[in-house]
């Protein structure tokens, strides 16, 4: 059985600027994997490479054994990988409900409205604001919307780019609790890129450490938590 997602020897960047220097990692079905790393380590670029947003990339990305490098973002969504971009990527001119409906763009089944209601029950704030333009909501609400929108495509794997960015600590904690629940109840695998290592390692099963475009460490969440260098660099104790 092959991994849900497997990246092998990714090299890439933007024009002359190389950001990724040959990194390899994988995500198994149902797993939450975190990639830790400082600003500029290449975390966002890694996710962009996975979801087809990076033009300039070499190596190999496999989803369930199928090579997907070079596919467009919308084609990758159809293979079951959704991406919550950094800064939440709110489609500001659409209402909350329209954002969610657009999230189901690749689906052909009739249960879309039912699923929207489901996410309203998970994130009640979204239900209260369903007719509002998404751009008018607070940062935390927009993050929840972005996650719900990604999950509307019923993905096997969600890529989450710094979900805690710009959120108050309490809101972040709440958000990570929800993410854990979603993972347990739906079995959706997650690849989370995070600076808040404490929270991320609580959520994750496994993790990698990314430094200047290379994986420098990897292991189970508990191994990483007890690792001296990881603790010093990312956990701050």
């Amino acid at each position: 059985m092959s991994a849900l997602l497997e990246a092998i020897d990714l090299v890439g960047g933007y024009g002359p600027v190389r950001v990724l220097h040959g990194l390899s990692f994988d995500v198994q079905p149902g797993e939450v994997v975190v990639i830790l790393g400082a600003n500029g380590a290449g975390k966002t670029t890694t996710l962009r490479a996975l979801s087809g947003l990076l033009d300039d990339v070499k190596g190999s990305v496999k989803i369930e054994g199928e090579d997907v490098l070079g596919l467009r973002p919308d084609q990758i969504v159809r293979l079951g990988v959704a991406h919550v971009p950094q800064g939440r990527g709110t489609i500001t001119d659409l209402t909350v409900e329209e954002n969610l409906r657009l999230g189901a763009y690749v689906r052909r089944d009739a249960d879309v409205q039912q699923d929207i209601e489901h996410w309203y029950s998970v994130f009640p704030r979204l239900g209260e604001r369903r007719e509002q333009p998404a751009g008018s909501m607070s940062g935390g609400e927009q993050q929840m919307l972005a996650i719900a929108r990604a999950l509307m495509s019923k993905p096997k794997l969600v890529l989450l780019d710094e979900p805690s960015l710009g959120l108050a600590p309490l809101v972040t904690r709440e958000l990570f609790t929800r993410l854990g629940e979603i993972n347990r109840t739906t079995g959706t695998a997650m690849l989370v890129v995070e600076q808040n290592a404490n929270l991320a390692l609580e959520l994750a099963h496994r993790g990698y450490v990314l430094e200047t475009g290379q994986i420098v460490a990897g292991g189970s969440a508990s191994e990483l938590k007890s690792d001296e260098t990881v603790r010093k660099a990312y956990l701050g104790y």
């Binding site: 979801s51 947003l53 467009r72 973002p73 919308d74 969504v77 159809r78 959704a82 991406h83 919550v84 971009p85 990527g89 709110t90 489609i91 500001t92 001119d93 657009l102 999230g103 763009y105 690749v106 972005a146 929108r149 990604a150 509307m152 495509s153």
Partner: peptide
């Protein structure tokens, strides 16, 4: 938002 739209398929 064309990028976000692409990312939902």
């Amino acid at each position: 938002n064309s990028q976000s739209s692409a990312l939902v398929g």
